[in-house]
């Protein structure tokens, strides 16, 4: 674990293993308290509130395997068009 100082805000906690790095920090605005979970490598982040976090507590390891069905994030809806379509058509 690494604690990253975060100017004027709460520090960021970073944990890592051989496969990835993830950062967690506390965010609050007025009444709103969230944990910010972000993936510096993939560029995704999510804000989790108490109920969302609570819902994680009863999930099984298999559920996380399902979430990892797309191991590098959700991907984008591809409007798949062959490269040949771009060549000398217009």
């Amino acid at each position: 674990m690494t604690i990253i100082r975060n100017e004027g805000q709460d520090p960021i906690i970073q944990i890592a293993n051989e496969f990835t790095v993830i950062q967690v920090s506390y965010i609050s605005t007025g009444q709103r308290e969230r944990l910010l979970v972000s993936s510096p490598r993939l560029g995704f982040q999510t804000l989790l509130d108490p109920l969302q976090l609570e819902s994680l507590t009863w999930q099984t390891p298999e559920m996380y395997s399902k979430l990892l069905d797309t191991p590098y994030g959700p991907g984008v809806k591809l409007d798949a068009r062959p490269l040949s379509a771009l060549l000398g058509k217009d």
Partner: peptide, 14 residues
């Protein structure tokens, strides 16, 4: 007089 034992770890390891 110490020669530490090293192992192969990911760059992010402390």
């Amino acid at each position: 007089y110490v020669v530490p034992l090293r192992v192969t770890r990911e760059r992010e390891a402390e």
